[in-house]
């Protein structure tokens, strides 16, 4: 392996940064959601990189679990977005003040 671990980690951090920025700034719920996926992928990348660096398969197993949870999350999250869109005719999170009663 000639690529240093830190390179992977920096890429991972950058992708995570992009995810955070997206979540914090975008108003389209679907894009926000995709940015969350982006963050998950960034983390997965670190897992795999560490697994290789430490020669331990546990990282791969974690990635597997992260993916399973992400799948579940996407299914439920998209269902919620659909339900909200049916009622509000919008997926603009700035319009959604459901948390305030």
């Amino acid at each position: 392996m000639t690529v240093p671990l830190s390179a992977y980690l920096i890429l991972s951090a950058f992708l995570f940064f992009l995810g955070v920025v997206g979540v914090a700034t975008r108003r389209n719920a679907l894009i926000v959601f995709m940015c969350i996926e982006l963050m998950l992928n960034a983390v997965n990348l670190s897992f795999v990189a560490f697994a290789r660096s430490l020669n331990s398969m546990a990282g791969h197993v974690f990635v597997f679990f992260v993916m399973a949870v992400a799948t579940a999350e996407v299914a439920v999250g998209l269902a919620i977005i659909i339900a909200i869109y049916r009622n509000r005719e919008t997926v603009d999170v700035a319009e959604l003040n459901l948390l305030k009663w």
Binding site: A75, V76, A79
Partner: peptide
Amino acid sequence: TSVILLVAIVGAMVLA
């Protein structure tokens, strides 16, 4: 994990 997936399936159906 399998339980989580099951719950997600049911939840997604109910919510949508």
